[in-house]
Amino acid sequence: MHAQFVLFDGFDPLDVVAPFEVLVAGGAAAGGDLTVELVAAEGPREVVSGTPGLTLRATGALDPVRPGVVVVPGASGPVEGDPDAGDETIPVLLARVGRTELAPLMRRALTEPEVLVATVCGGSLALAMAGLIEGRRATTNALGIDLLDATGVEVVAARVVDDGDLITAGGVTSGLDLGLHLLDRMYGPRIAHAVERLFEYERRGVVWADRGREPVAW
Rank of each mutant, 00 (worst) to 15 (best):
R213A: 14
V160M: 10
G205P: 10
G175M: 04
V153D: 04
R203Y: 09
L125E: 00
A130L: 05
H181G: 09
D162I: 07
A157G: 11
D177S: 10
V207Q: 13
V172P: 03
Y187L: 09
D210C: 08
L180W: 00
L148S: 08
G175T: 02
S174P: 06
G170D: 15
R159S: 11
A130Y: 03
L180Y: 01
V207R: 11
H193V: 03
D210K: 14
H181I: 10
G152A: 11
D184N: 13
V172T: 06
V155F: 00
R136F: 02
P189E: 08
D162Y: 07
L183N: 10
S174G: 06
I145L: 15
I133G: 01
V216T: 15
L132D: 00
V160F: 02
L182I: 14
E154P: 02
D162K: 04
R190W: 13
G123M: 07
V207C: 12
V206Q: 15
G205L: 13
R204E: 13
L132E: 05
G188R: 01
A128N: 08
V195H: 05
L143Y: 02
E154Q: 10
G135A: 05
A194Y: 04
E134I: 06
V153R: 00
L143W: 04
M129C: 13
D149Q: 15
V207G: 12
G171F: 08
P215D: 14
I191F: 02
L147E: 14
T139N: 04
V195A: 01
F199P: 01
R136T: 00
A194K: 13
L198P: 01
G179D: 05
D184I: 01
S174N: 05
V161E: 13
A130D: 09
R137Y: 11
F199D: 05
L132Q: 01
A158G: 12
A138T: 02
A209E: 14
E214T: 15
D184S: 13
A158H: 11
V153I: 10
I191S: 08
R204I: 09
A158T: 08
T139W: 00
E196K: 09
D162R: 07
E196Y: 13
G170Q: 10
V156S: 07
T151D: 14
Y201V: 02
D184C: 03
G175R: 08
D184H: 14
G135C: 07
V206Y: 09
T168R: 07
L143R: 14
V156W: 01
V160H: 06
G144E: 10
L176C: 03
A209C: 11
E202H: 15
A128Q: 06
L143N: 09
G212A: 14
A130F: 12
V161K: 03
I191R: 03
S124V: 01
L148E: 07
A130S: 12
T139P: 03
Y187D: 07
D163P: 03
L143G: 08
L125C: 13
E202C: 11
L148K: 05
G135H: 07
V172A: 11
R185A: 10
A158Q: 13
L180T: 03
I167S: 03
G188E: 05
D165W: 07
T139A: 11
R211N: 10
F199L: 15
L132I: 09
R213L: 13
N141F: 05
P189C: 09
M186G: 08
A194M: 06
L198W: 11
L125K: 06
